[in-house]
Design a protein around this nucleic acid. Structure first.
Lengths: 347, 347
DNA sequence: CTGAAAGCGCTAACAG
DNA sequence: CTGTTAGCGCTTTCAG
């Protein structure tokens, strides 16, 4: 049977009439039950239950109450890194009775613009965003117009916004230092054809580590770029193995932009008969759930994904307070050494 | 600097005043630009841009326009199965200019209730839900009160709602038939301490396959249950390996409730020095991105996750049409044979 | 083609 | 303690 479009939610007025009281009494029962006479309240509550009455959020919002909805605008919700981050956001917001409107931008600026517009129209409580590009103008305007914005995975850079992130330069440095200390001197950095600030900053960290070791990054580091978006990254990475193996002299280690890419590389190397870590070491990034379960277990850089999300939600909720001051929260990544890295063959 | 709570969005009235026209003209420029004189429209548009005016969604909703927001209530957004399903929902809805409010219930009925209430209060366009329990009463009421509900991963069973799902019984059967035809006669079914209908139905499919082969499920099948929720499933599964290895006679194959559990089992078996598939065969479920990349590559049952989501969104959007009739869409799972299954040692 | 006016469902004074 | 009232910002007839 068709869902009759004629069904209309009952309004307070109807409840009031049914209970023989005025609308404001119904409103009181809902918002400040204590001030209503027990008997009246009982009658009203019964009417509410009986008619299946449900408050109308948009009308309340129109009266000036804050929306319980927060937008979360990220690169791709199906990417486990963001999925976990988003769970952090969700859980923290739930504690405050709020809900998450999650949007994936797939690295497309047009999509980002579109969802931001939609979110602002919905008059959400605020937006948590991992922005695609470096230009914060739109975000600043949104914030100025009254929709608070919290940046994720992008440094605050003195902007008039809150921000939460991980020290990406440090992350890159940790990974590189590990490989350098094992003796690797020919390292592939597997990035993407379109790179976000995160990946760029990590590469900078890698180069920094090399310079600090008295080595020349331009000699050691081989930049390879995978088409990351439409095609499944695992497969792109598996295919990228050809390029790695074509380099001469053969690299002895690969730093991957994330664990998913590392998974693909591991697979591709396996198919090509290259042993990890004996022939080539592989390092991932993110420390996703499957990383420890791979064979060999993946050495990777851990990011506090869930905590990042919680922190972002914290900051966003704090924006509602009158004494709120924008600030930045920065987490530290950490290296997780497992079995996919070892000294190079003849070091 | 604190985000001044005093910032208020400008309203149509203000835009109208600035452009020297009436509110309804502004409204017309926004909703039916064609009927406004070019010169007037230009003036209004300029005022809009100039003041950074943004329509107020809740007010429009109050006037009767449909909300662009759809709720998605699922077990856990960080679970890759649901994350991908949700992307299907998101992408399909985006085509219709709609947004997804995604909520995880973590198998807790109380949470489910709570988000459903919140969603209904927000007067969302509809709700897509993978319900925890078998009792559809709340959902039916919601639907009756005017918030359309689409079921995911739960058969329609003649309910007055739309539903989309996968044939779970068939999925279980496919996995079991594969193992039986390889000669396995001692199979562990690794389920959860709290099981959703999906997992229960799959087990039924497994038993069906055994009966069809003239075998007694009670002889062949060993039921093992993992605590799935709070603890990370990978680790729970790795720990569960102890139980598997304690069975006598030793099982020759393990059917896991999903790929994540299979990952844990693979890892646990590796640590215990048990060879897969030589000593024990392992089958997953879902065919997640990492399944093909594991060593050994995981034999698993594929579910069309993304398509499920799209179909659910399709149905939900269709609810708005006056001639909508509730219906069910059922997908077929398929077996993906990879390297983690083989005949038992001495068959 | 443009403007005036009614009212969606609710909250928050305020008066009784 | 309960009722009356005035909008919140918008869409939508309906007159001009």
């Amino acid at each position: 049977m068709a869902n009759d479009a004629g069904v209309r939610r009952s309004s307070m007025r109807e409840v009031a009439r049914a209970a023989g009281v005025s609308v404001s009494t119904v409103a009181n029962v809902l918002s400040r039950p204590a001030i209503v006479a027990p008997e009246t309240r009982r009658r009203v509550e019964q009417a509410i239950r009986h008619m299946g009455y449900v408050r109308h959020g948009p009308a309340r919002q129109l009266r000036g109450l804050p929306s319980p909805i927060v937008g979360s605008v990220i690169l791709d919700l199906a990417n486990p890194f963001f999925a976990e981050l988003n769970r952090g956001i969700e859980d923290r917001l739930a504690e405050a009775g709020c809900l998450v409107l999650a949007c994936s931008t797939d690295l497309q600026p047009a999509k980002e613009r579109q969802v931001l517009d939609l979110l602002e129209e919905q008059a959400v409580r605020g937006v948590i965003i991992a922005p695609i590009g470096p230009d914060p103008a739109v975000l600043l305007e949104m914030s100025r117009r009254g929709t608070p914005v919290v940046l994720v995975d992008r440094p605050r850079d003195g902007l008039d916004l809150c921000a939460v992130g991980v020290d990406d330069v440090l992350g890159g440095r940790l990974a590189a230092e590990h490989l350098l200390s094992l003796g690797h001197r020919r390292i592939v950095y597997l990035g993407g054809t379109f790179e976000t600030g995160t990946v760029i900053r990590r590469r900078e960290g890698v180069r920094q580590a090399m310079r600090a070791a008295g080595l020349d990054p331009d000699d050691l580091l081989i930049d390879l770029r995978l088409p990351i978006h439409p095609p499944p990254l695992v497969e792109a990475a598996a295919a990228g193995v050809q390029q790695i193996l074509a380099e001469r002299p053969l690299p002895t280690a690969v730093l991957c932009l994330n664990d998913t890419a590392a998974l693909g590389v591991l697979h591709g190397l396996g198919v090509a008969g290259v042993k990890v870590p004996q022939d080539i070491s592989v390092v991932g990034y993110d420390n996703l759930a499957f990383a420890a379960g791979l064979a060999p277990a993946l050495t990777t850089v851990n990011q506090p994904k869930y905590q990042l999300g919680r922190a972002a939600a914290d900051l966003l909720l704090d924006e509602a307070r009158p004494d709120h001051a924008h600030r930045e929260i920065r987490f530290r990544p950490s290296l997780v050494i497992r079995a996919s890295t070892a000294p190079p063959r003849r070091a």
